[in-house]
Amino acid sequence: MTQRINYVQQSPELFKKYLEFTTLLKDSAIEETIRDLVSIRASQINGCAFCLDMHVKEARIHGERELRIHHLPTWRESTLFSPRERAALAWVEVLTKLPEHGVDDDLYERVRGQFSEKELSDLTYDVMAINGWNRANIAFRTVPGSLDKAYGLDKANLA
């Protein structure tokens, strides 16, 4: 794969602001484990190799178990995820693949049963953020692993 353009260099101020937005999410009401699962699952759905590579490495650095990462595509059948994690995974899937008629009330109520209003709002911003990054990195074919050293992802020892 060859990168098309470097969108960071072409639009540095926009990149900086979007990165600031994403960085703010680290202080949100959503725990790191769920943020990692959300980023990985959205990147899987969208087919973003760069983001999938990055977020798997981040999750491993944060202590996520390898088997849970492998089970993410089949989270509905897996016994490795808590009800709260399942709700977050359902939310990321519905917001990443928006249905024609919006978010079903039953799904909303199931997810709302696991998250406070503040948490659900913060989770939605997490989903928005990763979907934006996926779109930029897919559009410009950012090479997976190309920024590992810069982002400290080489510490995951997954190369």
Rank of each mutant, 00 (worst) to 15 (best):
A88W: 00
D148Q: 07
K118F: 01
Y7A: 04
E32P: 04
P73G: 06
A156Q: 07
D53H: 04
A150V: 15
L95N: 03
I130V: 07
T23M: 08
K26Q: 10
G113I: 08
A136H: 03
C51T: 04
R141Q: 14
D36V: 01
R76P: 05
L147A: 15
V94C: 08
L67S: 08
S82N: 06
K17T: 14
Q10W: 03
V92C: 11
R84Y: 00
F15Q: 13
E93Q: 14
L14F: 13
I130T: 00
P83A: 10
K16S: 12
S121I: 09
P83Q: 12
W91L: 01
L147F: 11
V92A: 06
T23E: 12
R141W: 09
P73C: 08
F15E: 10
V143N: 13
S78H: 10
S39L: 00
L14Y: 12
V56R: 04
F140G: 05
I138P: 04
H71K: 08
L24F: 13
K57M: 07
L153D: 01
R68G: 00
P73R: 07
I61L: 11
T22A: 09
L25S: 06
L37N: 02
E31L: 03
D36C: 09
E117H: 10
T79W: 09
E93V: 02
G63K: 07
A129K: 09
V56S: 02
R86K: 15
S11A: 15
E66F: 02
L25V: 06
L25F: 07
V143F: 13
K155V: 04
E31K: 12
D104A: 07
Q114D: 09
V38C: 11
I34M: 00
M1F: 12
Y18V: 10
N134M: 10
A159C: 08
T96K: 01
W75E: 05
E66N: 12
H71Q: 15
Y151M: 14
T23W: 08
R41E: 00
L80R: 09
F140M: 02
L25Q: 11
Q3D: 07
E32G: 11
W91S: 02
A29P: 02
I30H: 05
M54R: 02
A139H: 05
S82D: 11
Y18F: 14
K26C: 07
E66H: 11
L25Y: 10
V111E: 02
G152V: 05
R4A: 01
I5V: 09
